[in-house]
Design a protein around this nucleic acid. Structure first.
Length: 832
RNA sequence: GCCGAAGUGGCGGAAUGGCAGACGCGGCCGACUCAAAAUCGGUUGGGGCAACCCGUGUGGGUUCGACUCCCACCUUCGGUACCA
């Protein structure tokens, strides 16, 4: 039998879903999170979390990325900033096409339905997203400007076409992105992927390589900056020309008479140039066909064929044998006048340096192995320390002294690098140069669901960009996008056939679409002015918000997205569109959330936790807080479905403390201690939020709640201290748990809204304790704890310690030779 | 192989030169209940009756004092893959 009192208590239980729905509705109705471009007396601050791909369902990982990010944005709001925290959708991309092939839904319909669904899920988070600035990269209003970017890059000479290899699946009849190639095979059908050369569009990101390399001053995690530097991979060395030996005048057919006069290599070791005994070209090197002599031609061609087919799979094994084929041709080392045989081998990459390498077997491990296998000489030119002239058993790649190097004999190798490079330049045989591992960015996709590349090919005028006032080039809806071996857009006559913008004659549109990384390279520049129809964004909006003050996202984007976005921003800067040089002043990489079993969440493993279920069961505040509580944000970790109950219990205790307080009496004992704890907690929570240490911030609030719970158990508390503490707790809860904070704020007689309050100031004087417990050690071993005045001198502390029997026991018969006193912490007596 | 991050109770983690294990999960004991769940309270690193001893991946070092700093090694995770 339930009494009225029971029923009343039950009705006033913490019911997260009810209050969350109610407050979300009110916040939305009153546009609480609408962010104006300027607010009198407030500084603008741009917080950004990476927007989701429109996969159809929000994942726990999205919550893990966004909830702490929202907490941070809310904290800075309370600290008096006008914070922009927008959200949108990365909506172009392959999964939409795959879903279409599988389920028979059009990619656009599939994507739009997913956006609807995901927007609803995002709203259940109760975040401060300003939805009036939402972007959808697949909407013509957005991709019009993605195309505009392409045209700007083209006009700047930063977009160009060249022949390049793409992954090709011969069974599915389609090109594949790198991530669709698993162990050299097609992800879908398992066929061995080939490399097929085709005309493709590239962005000249390498023009900015040097500037992109210099990321030292960014407030980013060091490991991310390092990853980018390694990815860009600057290496200093020399380019060296070798004279090509011309074929004999009576040369049997096959060798052309238009042979270039030289072949160039890049080396980081010009100091070893006197030790060259062979030369290796990449199998794809353009010179190969020209220089190969007739008797070697069959072997060379067979090798090139095999290399073209097998590269992807074979390259997975780094340890495989280095094999090559002799072309029959020779070149001449200018420095020595020696003839050098020219080989081809697939360990030389066509796409790095000059696609050709000089072989110095004595001083390079790969060259050493290669020379041993083919019986090529291995002369030592860098003498290792203590070298006595015997043949080497392994390549010596360390520094040493030059020998058998003519005019450079006796020079230290470190010095010889520069000297020989300079000498080459002086003789016109090459010279010092810098190479980057970074390649130009291939942006062509032979795909349907992307922004069409806004270019037209005219038989007379050549390549002509679509005039800006004719953008967007609309992606047609009614197109056959099943893979046929060609870009889907090329099958649409209506799309392809157009007229030349310059001469008006019939012309053809480009039918490739753009890499989706392009859409995400500038979306953060669009949020500040998301509805501008005349420009990608206006300069006032750019000045108001850019660059982004705080970006957060996963470190899987360290080298692709984050590098492309930096590249775009520098281009935008050079066009005079944005302030500063870098898009993201501060970046933080959150960790990855794993399944309860500690492995990546995936449907096939059956360890997926659905955020909607968690919200339904525990409430959004609880789910948010738990994601922040489970560990340091940058580490991520397993999502333990059982531990969240602890956070739920905590929020219930908070609720009960506020709605059902102990008897409040004036000047009750313990008031001072409660205020001390409340202000100490406030100081710590502010500090922790600023440092993104959400887990310890939540833990500190739990401790405060536990102290309040003890007062409830005791039955009474000091009225003023209790009310102050409850108010502070509601304010501290506002960033991580916005709904319960709003409800408790209202219930304690405060006005709407807690989210428009300032972050409270803690009072440092209140935090100081009168007495403090100090650990007493003897020879570094803990013997007792004593309670002394916070301000106690060393002498006083020592006297108190010696008065302790447990300490005295370890002092008898000993002499104190040293005293270490750390006020408020520890006293260590060193005895002998 | 190279580069990076990390190894602490049964579990997630806290402490970045000063009391190891905050906070939470789980366990155990108790209250409420006919009972269970929920809730609340107590307790919980290991060993020992206790004094005390042992304990932060392993081995060494620096220090009055080391999870924390240094050297060597092991393991796990992430990035990268013949870059000349």
């Amino acid at each position: 039998m339930t009494t009225d009192a029971d029923r009343a208590a039950a009705e006033d239980r913490y019911q997260p879903r009810a209050i969350e729905r109610a407050w979300q509705a009110r916040w939305e109705q009153e546009a609480l999170y609408r962010t104006p471009d300027a607010v009198e007396g407030k500084q603008n601050r741009y917080h950004l979390t990476m927007f989701p791909y429109t996969s159809g369902d929000l994942h726990v990982g999205h919550w893990f990325a966004m909830a702490p990010s929202d907490t941070l944005a809310r904290y800075f709001r309370m600290r008096g900033h006008n914070v922009l925290f927008p959200m949108g959708f990365d909506a172009f991309g392959l999964p939409a096409e795959n879903a279409a092939l599988k389920g028979g839904v059009h990619p656009r319909d599939w994507t739009n339905a997913n956006i609807e669904r995901m927007r609803g899920q995002l709203k259940s988070m109760g975040a401060t997203f300003d939805w009036s600035r939402e972007v959808n990269t697949s909407a013509p209003e957005y991709y019009k400007w993605t195309q505009w970017w392409f045209v700007q890059l083209f006009k700047q000479g930063l977009a160009y076409r060249k022949h390049a290899a793409a992954n090709w699946c011969p069974v599915d009849n389609t090109t594949l992105a790198n991530e669709q190639v698993i162990d050299g095979c097609c992800e879908r059908c398992g066929a061995v992927v080939e490399q097929r050369a085709m005309e493709q569009w590239f962005f000249r990101i390498t023009r900015y390589a040097e500037e992109l390399l210099h990321n030292e001053d960014l407030d980013w995690p060091e490991h991310v900056k390092l990853m980018q530097r390694n990815w860009i991979g600057r290496s200093e060395g020399a380019e060296v020309a070798f004279a090509l030996e011309q074929p004999a005048a009576d040369g049997a057919g096959g060798v052309t008479d238009t042979l270039p006069s030289e072949v160039r290599v890049f080396t980081t070791r010009p100091d070893t140039l006197y030790g060259v005994t062979f030369m290796v070209l990449a199998p794809e090197h353009p010179l190969v066909a020209a220089i190969t002599t007739p008797e070697h031609r069959p072997a060379v061609e067979a090798y090139r064929d095999q290399a073209a087919h097998a590269t992807e799979i074979e390259r997975l094994s780094t340890e495989r044998e280095k094999v090559g084929v002799f072309t029959g041709a020779y070149c001449v080392n200018h420095l020595t006048g020696e003839r050098v045989p020219i080989w081809i081998a697939d360990y030389v990459l066509a796409s790095y340096g000059t696609g050709a390498v000089m072989g110095v077997p004595a001083h390079d491990e790969r060259d050493f192995v290669f020379a041993q296998k083919y019986g090529l000489p291995i002369p030592v030119v860098i003498a290792p320390p203590d070298w006595t002239g015997q043949p080497l058993e392994a390549a010596w790649i360390g520094p040493g002294t030059l020998v058998a190097s003519q005019r450079f004999d006796g020079m230290p190798s470190t010095e010889a690098k520069g000297a020989i490079a300079a000498y080459l330049a002086q003789q016109g045989w090459g010279g010092p140069t810098v190479q980057y591992r970074l390649r130009d960015w291939l942006i062509s996709r032979q795909r349907y669901w992307g922004a069409p590349i806004p270019m037209i090919t005219c038989p007379d005028c050549g390549l002509v960009p679509v005039p800006e006032d004719q953008l967007p080039v609309v992606l047609p809806y009614d197109v056959e996008f099943r893979p046929t071996g060609q870009s889907p857009l090329s099958l649409s006559e209506a799309f392809v056939n157009t007229s030349c913008p310059q001469c008006g004659k019939p012309a053809k549109r480009e039918t490739d679409t753009m890499d989706t990384f392009m859409c995400s390279s500038w979306y953060f520049m669009r949020y500040p002015d998301a509805h501008n129809e005349a420009q990608p964004f206006g300069s006032a909006a750019a000045e108001a918000w850019l660059p982004v003050d705080q970006y957060t996202g996963g470190s899987e984007h360290a080298t692709m997205h984050l590098l492309y976005a930096r590249f775009f921003y520098k281009v935008a800067r050079d066009l005079g569109l944005v302030p500063g040089d870098e898009p993201f002043t501060r970046y933080f990489a959150q960790g990855q959330i794993l399944g309860p079993d500690g492995r990546r969440m995936s449907k096939s493993r059956g360890n997926v936790v659905a955020p909607d279920d968690q919200v339904e069961k525990w409430g959004a505040d609880c789910f948010r807080a738990y994601l922040m509580f489970l560990g340091p944000w940058d580490q991520g970790g397993p999502y333990d479905v059982d531990s969240i109950v602890g956070v739920s219990r905590w929020l219930n205790r908070v609720w009960n403390a506020v709605t059902d307080p102990p008897a409040l009496v004036d000047d009750a004992a313990g008031g001072r201690e409660l205020r001390r704890l409340a202000h100490a907690t406030l100081a710590k929570v502010g500090d922790d939020l600023e440092g993104k240490r959400f887990n310890t911030a939540i833990a500190a609030m739990m401790e405060l709640t536990n102290a309040m719970q003890r007062l409830r158990d005791e039955g009474q508390a000091d009225a003023a201290a209790w009310r102050e503490t409850v108010g502070l707790l509601a304010l501290m809860l506002a960033p991580p748990c916005p709904h319960i904070a709003e409800e408790l704020w209202a219930r304690t007689g405060h006005g709407y809204s807690v989210h428009q309050q300032a972050w409270p100031q803690h009072d440092p004087a209140l935090i100081v304790r009168d007495t403090v417990e100090v650990a007493v050690q003897v020879n570094g071993r803990l013997r007792d704890r004593i309670s002394i005045a916070t301000t106690a001198t060393e002498a006083a502390a020592r006297a108190a310690a010696e008065a302790s029997p447990r300490v005295a026991e370890h002092l008898t018969g000993k002499e104190i030779v040293r005293v270490v006193y750390v006020p408020e912490r520890l006293l260590n007596l060193v005895v002998r």
